[in-house]
Nucleic acid binder design. Sequence first.
DNA 1: TATCTTTAATTGACTGACCAATCAAGAACA
DNA 2: TGTTCTTGATTGGTCAGTCAATTAAAGATA
Lengths: 188, 188
Amino acid sequence: MPKIGAEPIRKAALINATIFEVGRAGSLDVTVAQIARRAGMSPALAHHYFGSKEQIFLSAMRYILRVYGRSVAERLPGHGPRGRLNAIVGASFAPQNFQRETVSAWINFYALALINPEAARLLRVYHRRLRSNLILALRPLVDDPARVAETLGALIDGVYLRAVLTRGDVDAVTAEKLIFDYLDEALT
Amino acid sequence: MPKIGAEPIRKAALINATIFEVGRAGSLDVTVAQIARRAGMSPALAHHYFGSKEQIFLSAMRYILRVYGRSVAERLPGHGPRGRLNAIVGASFAPQNFQRETVSAWINFYALALINPEAARLLRVYHRRLRSNLILALRPLVDDPARVAETLGALIDGVYLRAVLTRGDVDAVTAEKLIFDYLDEALT
DNA sequence: TATCTTTAATTGACTGACCAATCAAGAACA
DNA sequence: TGTTCTTGATTGGTCAGTCAATTAAAGATA
C-alpha cells in the first residue's frame, strides 16, 4: 500500500467518512477513531493528514459548501425569467445536497459556527453568496428583492431543519414544492 | 442551609443554568460541573436531584416548551379574524422565547432530538400542537390551511436558526415583520 | 426545655471510561 | 538510501457518575 500519492485519497475518504458519521450520529460528538475506522484507516493517520479533529470538521464543511456551490453554478443561468431562481432552489434539493446524512451534517456544521470562528467565516461566505444570488435572481421579478431573498433563505433553512428531524426518508420533491408554492405567491 | 424543601428550588436553578450555559456555549457540550457552578452548587448535587445529565437536558427542554406553550395560551384567542394567528406568531417572538440564550438552547435541543428518543417525542408533541394550532387559525383565512401551516412552521424555524447564527443582538421586531409580511402575501 | 432520632441536603474525593493528540518505529515503494 | 505511509502504544486530560461522610433542620419524647 505505501505508494506515494495517498494523501488526497486518504483526505477525501476521511471527509466522506466525517460527513457520514456526523450525519449518522446527528451530532458533532463523533470521535476521530470512528471517522478513521469508517474511512478504513487508523486514528493516527487521520491526525497525520489533518493535524486535528477541528481541521477535519472544517474541511468537511468546506467540502459540503463547495459541492453545493458547484451544483448551483452548474444550473445557472437556467431558462426563462425564473431560471436563476429555479437553479438555486433546485440545487438546494438536489440529491447530493439533500441526502439525510448531508443535511444532518450541514445542520451540525451550522452549530459548529456558533463556537468556531473559521466555521462562522465559512458560513458567512455561504450566506452572503446565497443572498446575492437570490437578490440577483429576484430583481426582475419582485419589487423588493432583498426582503423576498431573506424570507426565501430562512424558508430553505427551515425546511432543511424539518427534513432532518422528520423520521423516515426526507422527501425532496415535497420540500421543493413547498418552496415553489411560496414563490408563486410572492411573485404575483 | 439544610432546610427541607430545597429540591424544587435547586431543580429550577439547575434548569435555568442549563439553558443559560447551553445558550452561551452554543452547544450541548456543557459539563455538569459548569451547570452546577452556574446554579451555585456542587456537581454531585446536580446528579443527586436529576440522576443524570440527560435528565437535566430533558427537563430543560420540557421547561422551554412549557413556557412557550403557556405564552401561546395566554394570547389566545386574540382579537379579530387573524387573532389566533397573531397570538401564535407573537408568542414565538415574545422576549422570553426569543432571547439569544433561549433560542440557542432551543436549537440545540432540536439537535438532541436527533439522538435522544425522549427529546424526539417532546419535539413531536410540540410540532403537532403547533401544527394543529396553526391549521385552526388558518382555516377561516385560506383555501389550504395545511399547506400554509407547513410553510409558516418552517419559516419560523428558519428565522430562529438565522437569529442564532447572526452575531449581535437578535431582533425580534424584524423577525416578526418577516413572518407577517409572508402572511400578508399568503392571505390574499 | 433539653435531648435524642430521623431525614433531607450537601459535598469532597474518587473511579472508570473515553478520547485527542503524540511518538517512535516498522513497512513498502522510488 | 531516503521518503512516504502507516500504526500500536502511550500520555495527559476530561468528565459523568458514585459514595461515604458531614451538617443541620424537623420531629419525637420525656
